[in-house]
């Protein structure tokens, strides 16, 4: 039974695309057949983060408009044979997406994949609405800061009213993924605490991804962090999140970045 998952946030720059790539790769590493779909038409980035930017021939808009078949637009990852990408168009804008077109693509993807991860654009406009439209579940990416949390709250309200599932009277299952979490700054009160965020959003937590240079490094070399450095703190956090997504009970811990020579000497199990 295929699951359609939207990765969304409302606010930009919180790590939707990075998280989509990392979660997609982690799912694929566990043997699930995964496609990640970039809905950020006009500002596509998912192809870069996955290192597939030089292999894009056809895109989502071509498929929506019937110019290309879905199989022509899907790009298979070179490292993970279970991971596929459906890129967005960089030359068009979000108006080129149609509700019916997205619906038929999602329906077709459901027959081919176990997981369909939709990378939503920022904002609450057409692109974001269509990315969440057919979702069964949603991952709301939130940074521990008030602006991000309020935008997430807004998006949760929309998930409860604007999706196909909500219109049928069902519930879109929602998860909070906290990214760029700095436990040091949180303990000094410079950031919202996890409890504050969950209190405001009243939605279950899927995982806490620590702020890390590894994430940036992985993005720059075009490799999801879960693939690029699987032992790093953020990679382990993403992998835990994926295991929770698959129904496993995994203790919620805040992975700590191992820094400095002493920590390295003390072994890799310190976290």
């Amino acid at each position: 039974m295929a699951k359609v998952l939207v990765v969304t946030s409302g606010k930009g720059g919180v790590g939707k695309t990075t998280s989509t790539a990392a979660l997609g790769a982690a799912l694929a590493q566990m043997g699930e057949k995964v496609v990640v779909v970039d809905f950020d038409v006009g500002l596509r980035n998912l192809d870069l983060v996955l290192g597939a930017e030089r292999r894009v021939v056809f895109d989502l808009i071509n498929v929506v408009q019937g110019v290309a078949k879905l199989s022509q637009a899907l790009i298979r990852d070179k490292r993970l044979e279970n991971l596929w990408l459906l890129p967005a168009s960089q030359t068009r804008d979000k108006d080129a997406l149609t509700d019916a077109g997205v619906g038929s693509i999602i329906a077709e993807l459901r027959t081919r994949f176990d997981w369909i991860l939709c990378d939503s654009p920022a904002g609450i406009e057409r692109g974001a609405m269509l990315a969440m439209r057919y979702a069964d579940e949603a991952i709301i990416v939130t940074n521990p800061e008030v602006s991000s949390v309020r935008d997430s709250d807004r998006i949760i309200g929309m998930l409860d009213s604007k999706t196909v599932k909500a219109e049928r009277g069902e519930r879109v299952e929602k998860h909070i993924l906290i990214t760029r979490y700095d436990s040091g700054r949180a303990s000094r009160g410079e950031m919202l605490s996890i409890d504050d965020i969950l209190d405001i959003l009243a939605t279950p937590l899927l995982g806490i991804i620590p702020e890390s240079q590894d994430v940036l490094r992985a993005s720059n070399v075009g490799s999801p962090v879960t693939l690029n450095n699987a032992a790093s703190a953020p990679a382990r956090a993403y992998t835990d999140a994926v295991r929770r997504l698959m129904g496993e009970a995994v203790n919620m811990t805040v992975p700590i970045e191992r820094r400095g020579l002493m920590n390295r000497l003390l072994g890799r199990r310190a976290a």
């Binding site: 609450i124 309020r150 807004r154 309200g157 929309m158 209190d199 405001i200 009243a202």
Partner: peptide, 18 residues
Amino acid sequence: VRSGQSIFSEGDVTVLGS
């Protein structure tokens, strides 16, 4: 009641949540 939602009632409103 989430950010951005607007609720109107001609009577009382009771919210079992935030």
